[in-house]
Structures are given as C-alpha cells and as structure tokens.
C-alpha cells in the first residue's frame, strides 16, 4: 500500500521560505492569505497491505530520517485503502 508523510517546520521555528512565498502571493494580488508554511511530502510505496504495519513503518521512517524532531513535525496518512481504484492495493488484487 501507499503512504504519505508530510513534514513541516514546527510552529515555533521561523519558516522564512514560507513567509517569502506568502508575500509573493500577496504581491500577485491574492488577498486574505494569512500564515503560510512550506513543507515536504514523501509518497512511500510499501509492500505490506496491513494498514497497522504500514503506519508503524512510516512512523519509524519519519522518526529515523524523514523528519528532524528538533525542528520538524510530521503527519502520516495511508492512501488507497482498497476503494480508491488506483494504487498498489488494487493492482495486487487485480493480479491475484
């Protein structure tokens, strides 16, 4: 199955890139943009079809490498739980 890890700088850490991008939107005429934070997205394909195992593997990857816990927070999401009609789970089922 596929999972996604989103990594962002913690709230208390200044994100000068996010601030700059927010200002650029402002300059383009987008009104009402409040705070903007830039982050990173990791799409990870995993061999397992067990959501609990996938989640725990992604947690571990985020802690060990994908995020630096000193400055970053992360969020984990599992994709294609079987009903989305795309992605690894469906392909595997199709082959079986």
């Amino acid at each position: 199955m596929r999972g996604q890890v989103v990594v962002r700088l913690k709230r208390e850490v200044l994100d000068p890139q996010g601030v700059t991008i927010g200002k650029a939107l402002d300059n383009l005429g987008y009104e009402g943009v409040g705070s903007l934070r830039q982050g990173k997205v990791f799409d990870v394909e995993l061999e397992t079809n067990d959501p609990a195992a996938a989640r725990s593997a992604l947690e571990s990857m985020a802690r060990d490498l994908l995020a630096n816990p000193v400055i970053e927070d992360y969020e984990i999401q599992l994709l294609d739980e079987g009903s989305a009609g795309e992605g690894l789970v469906t392909e595997e089922e199709g082959r079986a």
Partner: peptide, 11 residues
C-alpha cells in the same frame, strides 16, 4: 551537538 541548522535568515 544539540539544536539544528536552518536556512539563513536572509534566504
């Protein structure tokens, strides 16, 4: 060493 190194403040 403690802490972290971020992008320079002036980018």
């Amino acid at each position: 060493l403690p802490g972290a190194l971020l992008a320079n403040d002036g980018l």
